[in-house]
Structures are given as structure tokens and as C-alpha cells.
């Protein structure tokens, strides 16, 4: 799955020359994906809007330095991700644990919630309450895991692209993604297990 637009075709020469129409086209193409990324990272619409604006201001200022080796979308993701991580560090330093998942010998905790909740009706799985719980679950992830989950599973980037955005090896991306997914699974399972319990109550 992917929220991204298909192949991007922009004139780098025009962008580097400061062509405003071409820059407006770039903004139009990518503003939604950048806003969504920021919203998932920060879970606050005002913060997400700030990140969105800062990302394109920086892009406009630095487009001359863009070497074209990666895709423009990857470059924009990189700017937006850095902005979002800086914002998190400022506002919620607790999400920056000393944890460095791929260097840690500590294995992921064993799953505790072994409940088959997949049979719950769709409207219950994505109720407003469930969605709020999903957002909280993402917010509880350390920033280093959250950013990988958001890029890879929500924005639909490949492992390689995610690594490019974050300057991480593919192995590190896979390790972080695995940990993020297992933690989210654990968190959602405990919520849906409660729902199942209520459903089965006479």
C-alpha cells in the first residue's frame, strides 16, 4: 500500500532556478503526504502544520543543494522527518530513550496478549474509540521505532527508501519495524481483548 503519488516528474533546473510555478506544483504534489507523516509522528494538528510549512520553506531554501541522487520525495521526507524528530525532542524528550534498538542485545519481550481478536466486526475494529487507542499506541513508541513504522507501514515506503530517509541500514530498518509492530500488536491486542470480553458477556 502507498499514500504516495506515482512517479514524480519535475524540472530540477526550473526548481533550482527558483521557478515558483514549478515549486507550487511540487508543494501540491507532496503536501498531503508530508502533513500525514507529521501528524502521525506528533499526533497534534498544529505541530503537524508547523512541520509541513517548515519542510517546504527549507526545501525552497535548499533545493539548489539537492543533488538528484535520491528521489525528490525521499529528500522531502528526510527534511520533514528531521523537523518532526527535532520537534519531538523539544516537546517530548521522554520519547527519546537511550534505546538504540538494533545495537541492543536485549530481545523483544515475549508476546503476552494471545487473543484472537481478528474476528471482531470491522466497525468495532476501527471505531472512533479504537482509532484513538491506535494513536495512543503509536505515541507510546520511542521516536526511533515510531518513525520507522510511520514511514514504512503508513506512508508505504520500501525498506530501502526508509533507510535512505533515516540514514539507516536495511537491517536496522527491519529490526526497528519488527519491534514497533510487535509493540503495537501487544497494545491493540489488550484493547481488543477487552472489547471481546464485553461482547461475550451475557
Amino acid at each position: 500500500m502507498s499514500n504516495r503519488k506515482t512517479k514524480e516528474v519535475f524540472s530540477l533546473d526550473a526548481l533550482r532556478a527558483g521557478d515558483r510555478a514549478e515549486f507550487a506544483r511540487l508543494v501540491e504534489t507532496y503536501y498531503e503526504m508530508i502533513y500525514r507523516l507529521a501528524l502521525k509522528m506528533l499526533n497534534d494538528s498544529q505541530d503537524a502544520e508547523d512541520i509541513l510549512q517548515e519542510t517546504f520553506i527549507k526545501a525552497y531554501q535548499h533545493i539548489r543543494n539537492f543533488d538528484g541522487r535520491s528521489e525528490l520525495s525521499t529528500w522531502l521526507y528526510r527534511i520533514a522527518t528531521n523537523e518532526a524528530l527535532m520537534q519531538l525532542r523539544r516537546k517530548r524528550p521522554q520519547t527519546f530513550s537511550i534505546e538504540n534498538p538494533e545495537f541492543s542485545d536485549e530481545a523483544e519481550p515475549e508476546p503476552v496478549q494471545i487473543v484472537d481478536w481478528c474476528c471482531l466486526p470491522e466497525e468495532e475494529l476501527i471505531s472512533a474509540e479504537a482509532q484513538a487507542r491506535m494513536d495512543v499506541a503509536i505515541e507510546k513508541l520511542p521516536a526511533s521505532l515510531r518513525v520507522v513504522f510511520v514511514l514504512r507501514d503508513i506512508q508505504g515506503l520500501s525498506t530501502r527508501e526508509t533507510g535512505e530517509v533515516l540514514d539507516l541500514s536495511e537491517t536496522a530498518v527491519k529490526t526497528r519495524l519488527s519491534r514497533a509492530r510487535l509493540r503495537l500488536r501487544e497494545d491493540l491486542s489488550s484493547y481488543y481483548a477487552e472489547r471481546l470480553g464485553e461482547e461475550n458477556r451475557p
Binding site: L125, A130, D153, R181, L184
Partner: peptide, 8 residues
């Protein structure tokens, strides 16, 4: 299912 719910 967790991943697909986030995507949905």
C-alpha cells in the same frame, strides 16, 4: 491485522 488497520 494491526498493520492493516493502521493502513485502512
Amino acid at each position: 491485522k494491526t498493520v492493516s488497520l493502521y493502513q485502512t
